[in-house]
């Protein structure tokens, strides 16, 4: 350890004064202490290779109905609860001159509304409630999913194959089972964690539901704006070209559902897997910058989902001839 310390400190200790970002003796010591603590933790509490499963794990089943409540569904409900309670708390006593939380929320909504109106023009105000709801919901659920501890506390279940050993510890009279890094052999029963919560968008059902809402509402908005003329996009007997292009348009509406849902699901799920695997490869430290990346990805995916909904709606309200490219 001493040798390492002198190695690290030598190039910076000799210089007089300290430029921003350089290591002083004290700062260097702090880093070494952090690394030592992490090294100690890695031996005492090794990070378990996570069981990666595509479908969401059921937490409990509602008796009688037989409806399995999965951990992603619980996370969705938690997001809804958070947003509901949050909006009630913000709007409880409104002032003409906003301050504090109200000011922040008004600023955020103002930015979103300005964006919606710059993309969709006058109709932006009409599309705004749905689009902003999608954005805020996805933002909260994506960011909630990367809170440390969110997806790592749960009940231990028997693993379908493979699995880990379990170590029982007693904390304040409670018996807690902690999963060990060691994997069990082929013949023994292994254990795995079914966490209570898991980021809502890591279950394909959530993005699919949002995509269906978005695409169906696009048709509704198009019908409201253009009447029956809107459907001449899909079925047209005016000329040969319309006959051929119509079905293509219909297929592209269906493809929107797939691309919406898989983009969101893939990004969020890949993010979770990335964080879990990185934490397993190099425990505790290396995943920290990737948390920042995941914050960015969560924001970007929420933004893209909402933005595309807005753009498709704006396109549906405009008549023929002004259709942009499809994604």
């Amino acid at each position: 350890m001493d040798e390492l310390m002198s190695d690290v400190m030598e190039p910076v200790m000799g210089e007089e004064g300290c430029l921003p970002g350089c290591l002083t003796g004290k700062g260097c010591l702090i880093y070494i202490v952090i690394i030592a603590i992490v090294a100690f933790l890695t031996t005492k509490l090794p990070v378990v290779m996570p069981e990666i499963s595509l479908p969401a794990e059921p937490v409990f089943t509602i008796p009688g109905v037989g409806f399995a409540v999965t951990n992603t569904l619980l996370a969705t409900w938690l997001t809804m609860l958070l947003l509901t309670v949050g909006s009630i708390a913000v709007t409880r006593n409104l002032n003409m001159v906003p301050s504090g939380l109200q000011n922040l929320v008004e600023w955020g909504l103002g930015v979103l509304l300005g964006l919606a109106e710059s993309v969709a023009g006058e109709r932006g105000r009409k599309f705004f409630p749905l689009v902003a709801t999608i954005f805020i919901f996805l933002l909260v659920s994506n960011w909630m999913g990367i809170v440390p501890g969110f997806a790592s506390v749960g009940l231990i279940h028997e693993a379908p194959h493979g699995g880990h050993e379990v170590h029982q510890v007693s904390v304040l009279g409670l018996n807690l089972n902690i999963l060990q890094a060691a994997e069990v052999g082929e013949d023994d029963t292994g254990w795995t964690v079914f966490s209570f919560l898991r980021s809502a968008a890591t279950d394909l059902n959530t993005p699919l539901a949002l995509a269906l809402i978005s695409v169906v509402m696009t048709q509704v908005v198009g019908y409201q704006a253009q009447g029956l003329r809107y459907f001449s996009k899909f079925i047209s007997f005016k000329d040969v070209l319309g006959l051929i292009v119509g079905p293509l348009e219909a297929v592209s509406e269906l493809a929107k559902i797939i691309s919406f849902s898989f983009r969101l699901f893939g990004n969020v799920f890949a993010g979770e897997v990335l964080l879990a695997v990185l934490a397993f490869i190099v425990p505790y430290l290396v995943s920290i910058p990737f948390f920042a990346l995941e914050l960015f990805v969560g924001l970007m995916q929420a933004f893209v989902f909402a933005m595309l909904t807005l753009v498709f709606m704006a396109m549906a309200t405009m008549g023929h001839g002004s259709e942009g490219e499809e994604h």
Binding site: L54, S259, F262, G266, V304
Partner: peptide, 25 residues
């Protein structure tokens, strides 16, 4: 640029989803 990158990246994400499904399902 960010929006464009997200669209280009989405294709890689589809490949990732396909790979994950092949591997884990």
């Amino acid at each position: 640029m960010m929006l464009g990158i997200v669209f280009a990246e989405a294709v890689a994400i589809y490949a990732l989803v396909a790979a994950l499904i092949i591997k884990f399902v």
